[in-house]
Design a protein around this nucleic acid. Structure first.
Lengths: 352, 352
DNA sequence: GAACAGCCTGGGAGCGCTCCCATGAAACGG
DNA sequence: CCGTTTCATGGGAGCGCTCCCAGGCTGTTC
């Protein structure tokens, strides 16, 4: 009767997919019964259920997500918000680990993962708008920067959200999963001190990220605890190139440095490059400790590092988010994973 | 009047977002005019447009995607289908590059990227069901295996699709973007031959992937062209560990081997590990050529390799998909990027 | 055997949006 | 000055689904 009403639309799928109405007709039941059968089947007779099941298969029926979402106000998808220019995502195993972990948490659910590259070329408010717009049931935010600005707005929106890495404003009651970065920095300092290294420097991450700040604070606390002077501090950006540059600055400040803690493995690798270029041996002249404990490529010098269980953290964040979506408002404490020192060759005995 | 009708629903967002109706009221126009103003504003008076624009800002209005999608039959999202168990995604820079490239192509659009880990723990038909279910406007498929099975079904569904890497059945008219893998394999063989290496072996990728097959075929063709014997072939899985194991098998077959072509950089790295463990030097005893040309970590031996512009390929795939969605049916030829040999230290002079 | 509870069932309404169409106002031509 | 075109406008219908509710059917209870 009215099949022409949407003639003006852009091309529809080749074969229009069957609707619930079609399904019901094929199964010889009503739309309502078909709907109930599709959704878990409470209050549906076995015969009706069987008829619907059969019709689903023969018709290849898939519920229209848009229509369902319109009434349930659920979208069955969550956003993974990555606050970085793309280049970094590409290089850093951290993000790959995050994606792996979140995917793992979602595996048994109907949830889909929507990737939101929030700082990549554009309007940051677009991210919040999208998030608030009801397009997703929840969000996991990773790599959060101090100047992001929209954290409060996001918290106020009531959208279930879990951060990976402590957000700057913990007063907003945002759930988060983190590693004990402070303790990690401290362990690195104590380890180098115990190994007899006395002229120590550190390469931090960008200090607009809590992880970088915490690692630095822990490092400084560890040095105090060991009775060592604070030593030079150079700022990096979590990339190998940044680590190299920072190490050069460290050497300029103290050419006799014999231990370096870098706030990420990638920067530690970069630092080692700079050290070797300066004619220094690792660990002979300078011991190096990283942070993350991501897989080392074969053939590289095994790195002493602070283990951060990134995949597990991301999976946990995913599970927390699912819980929060299912049962909102049950504010939980943050989940902090312990930092664990893993000693390998890069901080071996001095003087080699 | 009927605000209780959906009382039984799961918790709605804290503050219900304004609807188009609210927006229209606030702007003092009708729903229709508001809708037109939102969507490009043809046939809208400047005053009405301004009023709506102002209301959008003051109300923080975002269109409900589900409702819009229900009528337009467009979802403003595309799927990136990754056909691998997660572990691989995590280790291989290839996927990071793909994500980067696709994101880049989508940057200026309203499109969102939905990540579909298709083989990760489950029912493969779920992927096709999702794809056919009208949840996305198109799909990019990467890392396609011979046994995936659903390629035909996907092609038949009419969903705009672009493969990265040639699909097995090119008769289905599926668009794809690829690198000239055959030529890459051939160049590797000719390069090693020209460098005076005569006892050559290769480490393939999984042969249920076209990229692996093409590289092997090209390699064998190159050897024939150079008048060299085919030499041992070991099968790997694109991972460093697989490369290591394969290299061990290669050495078992010919302990005097002096050149190896691995079908990925990661496997080449793994092979180098095995060679060194066997007391052989690279490139002194054995020259190694990889494939991909992904960033080398600082400190590693620079790898001779075949350059594959992965980010650009993925971006191109994204752009092709957008075109195909916008203007379906304009079947285009596949886009094949040339393979380029990049000579570095790992295939340097013999005998060192 | 009547009254009640229990269950399954189908019709109706509505989610927020876009598109069609009819309406009225303004601009134009003869 | 009136017919005709152009243009902005608002109301209506419908996208496919879920939920509510009333109705019919059993099976139970006194």
């Amino acid at each position: 009767m009215n099949e022409q009403i949407h003639r003006g639309l852009r091309a529809a799928p080749a074969r229009p997919s069957p609707t619930l109405e079609d399904l019901a007709t094929a199964a010889g039941v009503s739309r309502s019964t078909a709907s109930r059968a599709i959704n878990g089947g409470s209050r549906v007779s076995p015969e009706a259920q069987a008829a619907v099941d059969a019709a689903v298969i023969s018709l290849g029926y898939t519920p229209n997500r848009a229509a369902r979402s319109l009434v349930t106000r659920r979208t069955s998808s969550i956003a993974l918000v990555i606050n970085e220019p793309d280049a970094r995502v590409m290089m850093d195993p951290f993000f790959a680990a995050v994606i792996t972990g979140v995917t793992e948490a979602l595996r048994e659910t109907e949830m889909q993962l929507v990737l939101l590259m929030s700082r990549a070329g554009g309007d940051p408010s677009r991210t919040v708008r999208y998030l608030r717009g009801g397009h997703v049931d929840g969000a996991i935010v990773v790599s959060h920067h101090k100047a992001d600005g929209w954290t409060e707005e996001l918290a106020a929106s009531g959208l279930p959200t879990v951060f990976i890495g402590r957000p700057w404003d913990t007063g907003l009651g945002i759930h988060y999963v983190d590693v004990d970065s402070f303790e990690g920095g401290r362990l690195a300092a104590l380890h180098l001190a115990a190994a007899g290294r006395t002229r120590l420097g550190t390469i931090t991450g960008p200090l607009d990220m809590t992880a970088a700040e915490d690692r630095l604070d822990g490092w400084l606390a560890g040095l105090r605890e060991a009775g060592l002077p604070a030593g030079p501090v150079a700022h990096g950006d979590f990339t190998p190139a940044g680590g190299t540059e920072a190490a050069v600055r460290l050497l300029a400040e103290d050419s006799g440095i014999n231990g370096i803690f870098a706030a990420s493995d990638l920067m530690a690798r970069g630092a080692i490059t700079a050290l070797k270029a300066a004619g220094l041996s690792v660990p002979g002249d300078v011991a190096v400790v990283g942070f993350d404990d991501h897989l080392t490529a074969p053939g590289e010098l095994p790195l002493t590092t602070i283990n951060q269980p990134t995949v597990e953290m991301a999976a946990r964040a995913g599970r927390l988010l699912l819980e929060d979506i299912e049962n909102p408002g049950a504010l939980r404490d943050p989940v902090i994973y312990p930092a664990r020192l893993v000693v390998r060759a890069s901080s071996g005995p001095q003087g080699g």
